[in-house]
Simulated assay, not measured.
Amino acid sequence: MPPSALPDGDPAPVDGRLPPAALAARDAGAISAYVHVPFCRVRCGYCDFNTYAPGELTGPAGSATAYGTAVEREIALAGEVLQDAGNLSLATVFVGGGTPTLLPSEQLTGIVRRLASQWQLEDDAEVTTEANPDSVTIDSLATLRAGGFTRVSFGMQSSVPHVLATLERTHGPANVAAAVAGARTAGLDVSLDLIYGTPGESIEDWRRSLEAAIALEPDHISAYALVVEAGTKLAAQVRRGLITMPDDDDEADKYELADELLTAAGYGWYEISNWARPGKECRHNLAYWRGADWWGFGPGAHSHVGGVRWWNVKHPGAYADRLVRGASPAAAREDLT
Results as ranks from 00 to 15, higher is better:
residue 39 F to E: 02
residue 67 Y to C: 04
residue 157 Q to R: 14
residue 286 L to W: 00
residue 288 Y to H: 05
residue 294 W to Q: 09
residue 276 A to T: 06
residue 62 G to K: 03
residue 126 E to C: 14
residue 190 V to P: 01
residue 257 L to G: 03
residue 71 V to A: 07
residue 136 V to W: 04
residue 90 L to N: 01
residue 149 F to I: 06
residue 184 R to D: 01
residue 152 V to Y: 06
residue 144 L to H: 10
residue 150 T to A: 12
residue 158 S to F: 09
residue 238 V to N: 09
residue 154 F to P: 04
residue 159 S to I: 07
residue 280 K to R: 15
residue 227 V to D: 01
residue 2 P to W: 00
residue 266 G to T: 12
residue 156 M to I: 06
residue 171 H to I: 11
residue 152 V to R: 09
residue 109 T to M: 03
residue 148 G to P: 07
residue 267 Y to C: 06
residue 175 N to C: 13
residue 221 I to P: 03
residue 229 E to M: 04
residue 116 A to Q: 09
residue 269 W to T: 05
residue 212 A to P: 00
residue 97 G to S: 13
residue 293 D to L: 06
residue 36 H to T: 02
residue 103 L to I: 08
residue 140 S to V: 04
residue 75 I to G: 07
residue 134 D to I: 12
residue 131 A to L: 10
residue 125 A to Q: 13
residue 300 G to Q: 02
residue 196 Y to W: 13
residue 218 P to T: 13
residue 192 L to C: 02
residue 289 W to S: 06
residue 134 D to S: 14
residue 48 D to R: 07
residue 68 G to A: 14
residue 42 V to P: 00
residue 144 L to T: 09
residue 316 P to A: 10
residue 241 G to M: 09
residue 203 I to L: 12
residue 78 A to K: 03
residue 59 G to E: 05
residue 274 N to V: 03
residue 123 D to M: 12
residue 121 L to K: 11
residue 120 Q to S: 15
residue 75 I to R: 13
residue 169 R to H: 04
residue 110 G to C: 07
residue 318 A to K: 12
residue 17 R to V: 15
residue 160 V to L: 03
residue 166 T to D: 04
residue 236 A to H: 14
residue 141 L to K: 13
residue 85 A to C: 08
residue 129 T to C: 07
residue 146 A to G: 05
residue 189 D to T: 13
residue 186 A to K: 11
residue 3 P to T: 04
residue 67 Y to I: 00
residue 47 C to P: 03
residue 10 D to I: 09
residue 116 A to I: 04
residue 159 S to N: 10
residue 278 P to A: 04
residue 2 P to E: 00
residue 121 L to Q: 08
residue 173 P to C: 12
residue 147 G to E: 06
residue 69 T to D: 09
residue 123 D to W: 11
residue 199 P to H: 09
residue 270 Y to Q: 03
residue 299 P to H: 05
residue 51 T to N: 10
residue 127 V to Q: 11
residue 35 V to K: 04
residue 310 W to Q: 00
residue 66 A to I: 02
residue 25 A to H: 02
residue 255 Y to V: 14
residue 166 T to R: 06
residue 312 N to S: 13
residue 293 D to R: 08
residue 25 A to W: 10
residue 325 R to C: 11
residue 29 G to N: 02
residue 265 A to R: 01
residue 239 R to H: 14
residue 268 G to M: 11
residue 80 E to S: 10
residue 116 A to V: 01
residue 80 E to D: 14
residue 239 R to S: 10
residue 54 P to L: 01
residue 289 W to Q: 11
residue 293 D to Y: 07
residue 318 A to Q: 14
residue 161 P to H: 15
residue 72 E to S: 15
residue 53 A to P: 07
residue 264 A to W: 00
residue 136 V to F: 07
residue 148 G to A: 08
residue 14 V to Y: 03
residue 204 E to W: 01
residue 244 T to G: 08
residue 81 V to E: 05
residue 52 Y to F: 15
residue 333 R to T: 05
residue 168 E to T: 15
residue 317 G to L: 06
residue 257 L to D: 06
residue 315 H to E: 05
residue 7 P to E: 11
residue 96 G to S: 11
residue 336 L to C: 05
residue 277 R to V: 04
residue 307 G to Q: 01
residue 213 A to P: 00
residue 282 C to M: 01
residue 187 G to E: 00
